[in-house]
Structure formats: C-alpha cells, structure tokens
Amino acid sequence: MPGSAGLVLVDGVRYLEPQRAAFDAMLEGWAAQQRTRFLKDGTIGPRLGLVRRFAVFSNQYPWQWTPAEVEAFFDSLRGGEQPIVVSTARGYQTVLRLFMAYVTRRPVRLAAGVSGPVR
C-alpha cells in the first residue's frame, strides 16, 4: 500500500467502510506524527476532535472537502448564542490547515546515491 496509510491500515483486509477506515488512518497517522514532535495528548486530542467535528459538519471526508465547507463551518461557529471569538477561529483554522498539510504532503524518499530527500 503506497504512502503512510500502509503503516496504519492492514494490507489484505477488506474493510466494511473503506472510506471511514482511510479517514481513521489519516487521523491516527497525524496523531502519531504529533506525538513524535513531543506534543501532549492535551493538544493532540482537541485537534483530532476538531477535525472529526468538521467532518461531521460537512458530512464529507477530507478528500471531498472544499473551501465552501470550511466557510460554512466557520460561519456556523460565528452564529448562535455563543459565537466563537476571532482568536478561537484562527486557532481552529490553523488546526485544519495543519491536518490538511499532513494528509496532502508527498512522501519523502531517498534516491540511490543522493544524500538528501527527493520529492
């Protein structure tokens, strides 16, 4: 299995909900990456929760998300009885940006005879 999903998903297993399994693998991989950067569960957990919350709001998986869903999500958070403040919105936007950067990055590989990564 190409990419880092193979580190989380079991090769040869037929998943009942393959899209859900892929999404869960993305979240698990991102959590592992954050742990290797010495982030604490108190940081990682809320970040994962926000990504899941956005997925539920949009009723889509990350590979289906568009800017329109993100705008609608933040618009909904600004309304209601307890609208979020600007600093919270910026923090949420940063979390979503970090997650998307993780899942869309190209894997780094080393080419034969090359001392640095090749993209």
Rank of each mutant, 00 (worst) to 15 (best):
G3T: 11
A5Y: 11
A5I: 07
G6P: 00
L7P: 01
L7C: 04
V8H: 09
L9W: 10
D11A: 14
D11K: 10
G12M: 01
V13R: 06
Y15C: 09
L16N: 11
L16D: 14
E17G: 01
P18Y: 08
Q19M: 12
F23E: 05
F23R: 04
F23H: 06
F23D: 02
F23Y: 07
A25T: 07
M26G: 05
M26K: 08
E28S: 13
E28Q: 12
W30C: 03
W30P: 02
A32L: 11
A32E: 06
A32Y: 00
Q34T: 01
R35C: 07
R35H: 10
T36C: 06
R37K: 15
R37P: 04
F38V: 09
F38S: 03
K40V: 08
K40T: 10
K40L: 09
D41G: 00
D41M: 13
D41P: 05
D41N: 01
T43A: 08
I44N: 02
I44V: 10
G45E: 14
P46G: 10
R47L: 07
R47E: 13
L50N: 10
L50D: 12
L50G: 07
V51G: 04
R52S: 03
A55W: 06
A55D: 06
V56D: 10
F57Q: 00
S58Y: 10
S58D: 02
N59F: 09
N59I: 04
Q60R: 15
Q60S: 15
Y61P: 10
W63T: 10
Q64C: 13
W65G: 08
T66G: 12
T66D: 04
A68E: 11
E69W: 09
V70Q: 13
V70T: 12
E71Q: 11
E71F: 05
E71D: 13
F74S: 02
D75I: 00
S76A: 15
S76H: 10
L77C: 08
L77T: 04
G79W: 00
G79V: 00
G80T: 02
Q82W: 12
Q82R: 14
P83K: 09
I84M: 08
I84K: 05
V86S: 08
V86T: 12
V86L: 14
V86P: 05
S87K: 13
T88G: 07
R90Q: 15
R90K: 13
R90M: 05
G91M: 03
G91R: 02
Y92R: 04
Y92F: 12
Y92D: 03
T94Q: 14
V95Y: 06
L96T: 07
R97K: 12
R97V: 03
L98T: 13
M100R: 11
Y102L: 01
T104S: 12
T104H: 08
P107I: 03
P107E: 08
R109N: 07
A111I: 04
V114T: 06
S115Y: 11
G116S: 15
G116F: 14
P117A: 15
V118A: 15
R119S: 15
